[in-house]
């Protein structure tokens, strides 16, 4: 099992990093030929960056759109964030970046709430998807599967935490080992195996799924452009090329 997971995680990590990296590079390289911020928009690039920041941290537009959905989304994402930060302890040596480490340590007691929030948020999102006629209409198999996958990861994690503990010191040793290409034994624990298998699956599908919304939100032209077209001429490379050909 140790070897299987070692290979699986190397593969999943490679797919995640290369996949998302390629996507981000593609987003960054694709030109935006016209100024299309949704107005009223900030007048300066710094203001636009701040707007994106608000979308990422506060889900500002979602707040305007739908308050219950905003709440579910917040509960889920904040829970997830808390869980992920807490998980850093499996990958970092205590000596690494002391302030970060002390934050992780400080957050440990909240892990359970993070996990619960994440699960509660996911459950609410799932119910909404099934119950609200409009949302059911736009949902495809992959939308349900994604929620199911995250729920399963969360449930298996919570069970380790609350029902059948695993040897987290060994887990940490396994992952620290992977980072220096030293394969150390992973506890042969079924819950852990399920948790890790599903996490690897999540990493594998990430670059091919709607989870790209996480990096993608930073590239959305309607949010990240400043409203200054009269002051500054905006010209994409292909439009400039067109112009040269014409003249």
């Amino acid at each position: 099992m140790t070897t299987f997971f070692a290979i699986l995680f190397y593969a999943a990590f490679a797919v995640l990093v290369v996949g998302v990296g390629l996507k981000v590079a593609q987003y960054a390289r694709t030109p935006a030929p016209l100024k299309i911020p949704t107005t009223p928009a900030p007048l300066t690039p710094a203001g636009a960056a701040f707007r994106v920041g608000r979308e990422v941290t506060l889900f500002e537009s979602l707040w305007k759109a739908n308050k219950p959905l905003w709440l579910f989304a917040m509960v889920f994402h904040l829970g997830l964030a808390l869980v992920l930060v807490r998980h850093l302890r499996y990958f970092l040596e205590p000596v690494w970046a002391p302030p970060v480490w002390s934050l992780i340590v400080w957050l440990q007691p909240f892990g359970i709430y993070g996990g619960l929030a994440m699960l509660a948020g996911l459950a609410a999102l799932l119910v909404r998807r099934v119950v609200v006629q409009r949302i059911a209409y736009i949902s495809g198999p992959s939308d349900y599967l994604m929620l199911a996958l995250l729920l399963a990861i969360g449930v298996s994690g919570m069970m380790m935490k609350m029902v059948a503990h695993t040897d987290i010191v060994a887990v940490k040793s396994f992952f620290l080992g992977l980072m220096v290409f030293d394969i150390r034994a992973l506890p042969a624990d079924p819950l852990l195996a399920v948790h890790l298998f599903l996490v690897a699956l999540l990493m594998l599908v990430f670059p091919f799924s709607k989870l790209l919304h996480a990096p993608g939100v930073f590239f959305s032209p309607t949010r990240n452009q400043a409203d200054d077209p009269r002051e500054r001429r905006h010209l994409a490379p292909w439009a400039a090329q067109l112009e040269r050909e014409r003249n």
């Binding site: 996507k23 593609q26 987003y27 694709t30 030109p31 935006a32 030929p33 299309i36 979602l62 739908n66 959905l69 989304a73 609200v132 409009r134 949302i135 736009i138 949902s139 495809g140 939308d143 709607k210 790209l212 919304h213 993608g216 939100v217 590239f219 959305s220 032209p221 309607t222 994409a236 292909w238």
Partner: peptide, 16 residues
């Protein structure tokens, strides 16, 4: 040619 189209095609989460 259009960043908008490129990004929008991928990132919709079907939140409704």
């Amino acid at each position: 040619k259009y960043k908008s189209l490129r990004v929008f095609m991928d990132i919709c989460v079907k939140c409704g």
